[in-house]
Design a protein around this nucleic acid. Sequence first.
RNA 1: GCUCAAGUGGCGGAAUUGGUAGACGCGCUGGAUUCAAAAUCCAGUUCUUUCGGGAGUGUGGGUUCGAUUCCCGCCUUGAGUACCA
Length: 964
Amino acid sequence: MKYFHNEIEEKWQKYWAKNQTFKTYNTSDKPKYYVLDMFPYPSGAGLHVGHPLGYIASDIYARYKRHKGFNVLHPQGYDSFGLPAEQYAIQTGQHPAKTTEVNIATYRKQLDRIGFSFDWSRELRTSSPDFYKYTQWFFTELFNAYYCNIDNKAVPIKELIKELERHGNKKVNSPCNEDTPQITASNWKNFSEIEKQTFLLKYRMTYLSETTVNWCAELGTVLANDEIVNGVSERGGHPVIQKKMKQWSMRITAYAQRLLDDLETIDWPQPIKDIQTNWIGRSQGAHLQFNIQHSTFNIAVFTTRPDTIFGVSFITLAPEHELVSKITTLAQKKEVETYIKSTLKRSERDRMSDVKTVSGCFTGAYAEHPFTKKPIPIYIGDYVLASYGTGAVMAVPCGDQRDYDFAKYFNIEIPNIFEGIDISEQAFEGKGNTKITNSDFLTGLPYKKAFKTVIYELEKQGIGYQKINYRLRDAVFSRQRYWGEPFPVYYKNGMPQMIAKKHLPILLPKVENYLPTSDGKPPLGNANTWAWDSKRCSVVNVQLVDGKTVFSLELNTMPGWAGSSWYFNRYMDAHNSKDFAAAEALNYWQDVDLYIGGSEHATGHLLYARFWQKFLYDLQLVPKKEFAKKLINQGMILGESAFVYRLVYTGQFISKNIFKKILSNQNLTLKEEELKSSNWNDSLKGLMYQSIHIDVSFINTSNELDIEIFKKSRKEYNNAVFILEDNKYIVGREVEKMSKSKYNVVNPDLICKEYGADALRLFEMFLGPLEQSKPWKTAGISGVYSFLKKLWRLYNIDENGIVQVREDSPSKASLKTLHKTIQKVEDDISNFSFNTSVSTFMIAVNELTQQKCNHRKILEPLLILLSPYAPHITEELWSKLGHITSISTVTYPIFDASYLVESNKTYPISFNGKMRFTLDLSLDLSKEEIEKAVMTDERTQKQLDGRTPKKVIVIPGKIVNIVG
RNA sequence: GCUCAAGUGGCGGAAUUGGUAGACGCGCUGGAUUCAAAAUCCAGUUCUUUCGGGAGUGUGGGUUCGAUUCCCGCCUUGAGUACCA
């Protein structure tokens, strides 16, 4: 009987759905294990073969853990708020909820077809009100909390108010709000309500502030730093400019140190840890002040090299620095204004692309050196960033190349403070043991000592202190979009107010138009009616009528990472309507044991989710500081794009190898039949050509183009002329990211139809190491497919579908094959090398076929072993073996080492390191006995040919080497 | 520029704490079966060779009886990051 994968897979998928085989309960005697995938955004394009790679790996692991006796939570859901659905809505008027619904249905169908063991009863969607109700609630919790530097954690804002009433803010300022002015208790008491609220905003974990944001005009919204790549938007590649706007921000900087420290407690890939460490960008240095001559102002700077303080010869401010306008002298005013204007014009991108050009301008003002009291000229320059440190630097040209270049350009002196270092060509940026010189009380000290000494001196004089600075910035949380979570916020006298938990969720209102309003408000400004908790309130024209008062609502929505920052906790108790999850559920599941997803989220989702979790932990809402113990980044599956080459001049399509010859202009000998076109020779004059992406389904496995299909694919190709090689048109191939626009997408549905889901699963694992990126080549699937067919044949299934297995004892060789396989596969799974375990199965089936082994005692454990990889065929064969229960419920076979232990060990015998022959020796022999046995062997004597060896090296259990 | 990772047949990739490099699969070659094809099965497949061997894991060194594996220099590729004071 043939292996009909389609029939089998349909049967078992139905069975699993009907019996809720993979439903998980929150109570069990078994230990828990939580396996999670990064949930997908349901795009209109559906899944391609690259998407399920991580899901397959996690599914194998989840099934394996179930076999190992764990109560496994393996859920799936959708990150269903997002830009594409909204842009589609703008174009078509179709409501994003509708498109999302349709896309999810497609995704679900595709996922089901691959045979995942997800517990779909826990499915969640970030765009569902049941879910975003809690996203909104967490927002209000963030608003109602501040970061306490005494407890070093977030605590309710009530505590801060109490403290302010008693002592003012003398003690409470944590590093993330150290710039907040100091107030006393009586100051606080004299504040008006609005002043109090304004003041508290400086402390809240989420706060409203006028900030410089990354504005993308094309997308009509602000973007977070991690959403910008090379100065353009990550999505769409549109230009991004700096703009001041009133925005919600998340005070993630409060957690900078803890986010850094706790990286050591989690088993995440080193590259991800490195990226996050880099992104947080901790640097240790000093904060110090320079008084400005003839004024009351002073300039605060941050430096990592306070030891070079005596090398300062000027100060540079960012053009946006607030002091610029205040200190510029009348004489320099015009020049400064012109310069600032020119820097505003330069986009971020320009500034980055020409890093080397020095530009700046003198303000006319002078600061005073804190120790020597010498005047120091103050410049502005756009190499200083307003958003890092204090937006001002003390320039030490001899110790920093950028300062050096600036000094050379403006002819500023470059004092040398490094003993025995030549700085005539470039700055000296090293530290090491070089001693500081020409530096008053620091002269003669090496870096470390000088660093400590100068900080001591600064603190003593009260002009500076040691400081740790972070590159990490607070994350902008407002988006001027429609398809996102509405904020649970209304405004009273211009101050934001939270809407109480009992009124949540604030439902996303219906709008006719998804674009910003004519007066520049975000799309939610188009809503006529808002509704939540309809019994209590009603909202008309974006105005909340609550009894008599009229308030306006927040019209921004939350960014894409809001829901994904906590969704993993929701799966633990997905349908709870009273809370985001019951305490019992949270305490049972604790955290994610294994998280699988792409590394592209390193500075986005993976950082925000860690921040959010820590916040929830501080409020004792979740039991763990980190949400995921182990993380694995699956690599990307790349597509092999196909190209045809067209000469622009003649319009001819030229087969790949002929085209290559033309390009290299070598050995250009064309057969007469290739020269069908009379224009041919002309075309060589100006070699203008296009390489055009064509759909990968137009070509066969030997890269030959199906010309007829190609011609029909587009009108413009109907009469295309082809120059062939060996009567074929060969296309060019190139590995690229899989994408619709490159026509290189391979749909998993087609693979499932042709080869089956089990073959797809095995093949995706077989492609290579999980973490690596690798190109997809459909041709390669035949290997695993024929493996499945061989497995099927091993079971001797007759025409009636009856399996004929032998019940007597299998041979020693077969048992050895089985137990070798058990051991190897378990080793591989625990190392997450799924690729090599697939090979192990293939070897096992080949060996068993050769041994003609179809013993029940071998076949049953083999099925259990294989079932995580190929669940459908193993379920089918299991049922044919006469079992009633599903294979998912049985436990993994236990490896019995006794089948592998051999009395003899084969020793390689080498001469001068070169292996000559092998000798079977007992494992129990002593070194001396082994040596004796080797030396008396006739092959040894033959090799030695009468000579005496210098020494004989015996490594018991490994090798014998004879050195002559 | 800085940080990290990786270089093994025609290709994807194996190789435990250093111990017979190239497992497994694709592709290719030959054979069996077939009227033929598909499918299936068997054999071969790193290079080189005067058929004894010899060379070989990017490259040059080092440690070792022995190195794909450990150490140092260089080259190449990929990823991340980018005026961070």
